[in-house]
Design a protein around this nucleic acid. Structure first.
Lengths: 331, 331
DNA sequence: TCGGTTTACTAAATCGGTTTACCAAAAATA
DNA sequence: TATTTTTGGTAAACCGATTTAGTAAACCGA
């Protein structure tokens, strides 16, 4: 039993495709289709359970009601939760989501981006590792509806939904200093992303403000291709250097470090404090104690969707830059 | 600068659409297009950066290379991780993912399902709360490529990728009984899903096998519409009843309970043992100690994709039922 | 009862590809 | 040289919708 098309319906009822299409699109009255015919078509539609082919619609209309969601890893709770919220918000507006995970790889990002474009997405919501890239740049120039979140390239004009980085990081670290911390280390994945750089700046600023020495050796970079091994090595370095506080620039690295601490140094989990940019539910009851900077997931999602919808609708160039305030959670 | 279509390319080069299409699809030799013309077209394609419109392709070919991924909540780590793995596996086969979260609501599930179908997905990977539903049933009857995972309706023939439920649950609980537990409670979300019922059966069986009394009052059901409040109430009941072990039927409820225990009964976290169907990374270092039944995420994803690809390719009816073995993690 | 308007509806073009069927010229064969 | 085959292409139909431009018939006022 093949699916019925408008053509089939028209034939079955002895009317034209045009008439059926008008009725389906609620243009029956406007287009002077008699009530009788309208009813006949609507009844038949219901009876056979006709569903329009969105692909055909998309081809004709030039719009797919599809948004691409491009992030480093959809299984990272931060991106998963934002994705989920965006899914719900977009659904209300009649859009739905295609997803892509880039693994922070430039090549994968460009391939996914091209896939999205070939599939004629109406817009993109992106946490990109490579905003400067050819494809994105050209899209930007041609005014393709896009919203960037989580990451920014200050050299590129675009719509950004961001979260303040430097100051919150500084303030979170200040809390530990207020409690007497003197030796503070930092663990970050490769900071080729501007927002990570800012978080690290916050770290340096906190030290500076308090007259603490900035020791370059205590700023450790983890290779994001082999997080576990690399983090273990760098964490070990910091522990052996005798730090009282370890600062992390995102949730993934904090989670890894918590796990490592419990596996390798269970005796030390009570002496050390973690500071994490990004919050995770588990921080509420894991050790070491974590002071975290919680990004406002709902706001990020809401703003992204709002700006995107606006840009799609207005078809005008827009370069909004929204900086949201994160929430400091001291435990 | 509008995007070029095949028609534009053909006009620019003074050849026909047909010729361009043949060359683009590597049918140049087969269709006797001269090397010279082929090169000319390919060079021009590269120069102007032509990208085919997948929507048009889909309309003509009747296949979209798109798979729908329908789960209760894409931000649940279990579904997020499986989704991520599936994304990667499908990508290799030239497919990509559209996602939908049902929130365990029948109505939402049907709406999303219809959306997927209107968008002409080539197949579906589903953790459904409502397999018996009209839409799914009719799809099944018309032999639409689908794979169900995580959940089963034994009354419906289909492709299932499942994990053993009863025995592993029984064995996990046995570990706690071996260590002397006598009073064992259970917390589950509303078990309107067959696999949850089986997990609960495993719980009952464990008690039975060991001559322990099955006290209906210790089997508490949490309302999945307001998990936190409901779980708090039910957990309180169990704690006050003096249980030594609490069993959970999925990760979400375990995670909530861990959080609640640490918030409300920090003094008891060391005395109580949790048993969780589904594993989470945090169990490695959270309290109370968790004995967990880890579902083989990678295998689930791999099998789902494999079976789906097979069904799509062969266009034959198939009713595979694969039951994977979970891994018991004792901490 | 004639011209204009409204009513009720339809043919055909279009979106951007793929594919079938066909054709002229050149090359190969009889 | 006449005929067949191969080479190198093209026109047009098609996928399933939307939309423009139009057309008969009914109606309506003068």
């Amino acid at each position: 039993m093949k699916k019925k098309s408008i053509k089939d319906i028209a034939q079955d009822l002895g009317v034209s495709k045009t008439t059926v299409s008008f009725v389906l699109n609620k243009k029956g009255d406007e287009k002077n289709i008699s009530k009788k015919t309208q009813k006949m078509i609507l009844d038949y539609i219901k009876k056979v359970g006709y569903q329009p082919n969105q692909i055909a619609k998309s081809l004709k209309n030039g719009t797919t009601n599809t948004i691409g969601y491009l992030v480093p890893d959809i299984s990272n709770p931060f991106y998963a939760k934002i994705g989920r919220t965006i899914e719900d918000l977009l659904w209300e507006k009649g859009y739905h989501l295609i997803i892509g995970s880039t693994d922070e790889k430039k090549e994968k990002e460009e391939r996914l981006l091209n896939m999205f474009l070939n599939r004629q997405v109406d817009g993109l919501i992106i946490a990109s590792c490579f905003i400067k890239g050819e494809v994105l740049k050209s899209l930007s120039e041609h005014n393709f509806p896009m919203v960037f979140f989580d990451r920014e390239d200050p050299g590129c004009l675009a719509n950004y939904i961001l979260v303040e980085n430097k100051t919150p990081m500084k303030e979170a670290i200040q809390k530990t200093i207020d409690k007497g911390a003197k030796k503070i280390g930092l663990l970050s994945i490769t900071p080729d992303v501007y927002s990570l750089k800012l978080r690290i700046d916050g770290y340096k600023q906190a030290l500076l403000d308090n007259g603490l020495e900035y020791d370059q050796n205590l700023l450790r970079i983890v290779d994001h291709n082999r997080i576990k091994e690399s983090a273990q090595k760098e964490l070990k370095y910091l522990i052996e250097a005798g730090v009282e506080v370890v600062v992390f620039t995102n949730n993934q690295i904090t989670a890894t470090a918590i796990w490592l601490m419990n596996m390798l140094y269970p005796e030390k989990v009570k002496e050390i404090t973690f500071v994490s940019f990004d919050n995770l539910d588990i921080f509420d009851y894991s050790m070491p104690k974590v002071i975290s900077i919680a990004q406002p997931i709902d706001s990020i999602a809401k703003q992204s969707v709002e700006i995107l919808a606006e840009v799609i609708k207005s078809k005008k160039i827009k370069n909004t830059r929204i900086e949201l305030k994160p929430k400091l959670i001291v435990r």
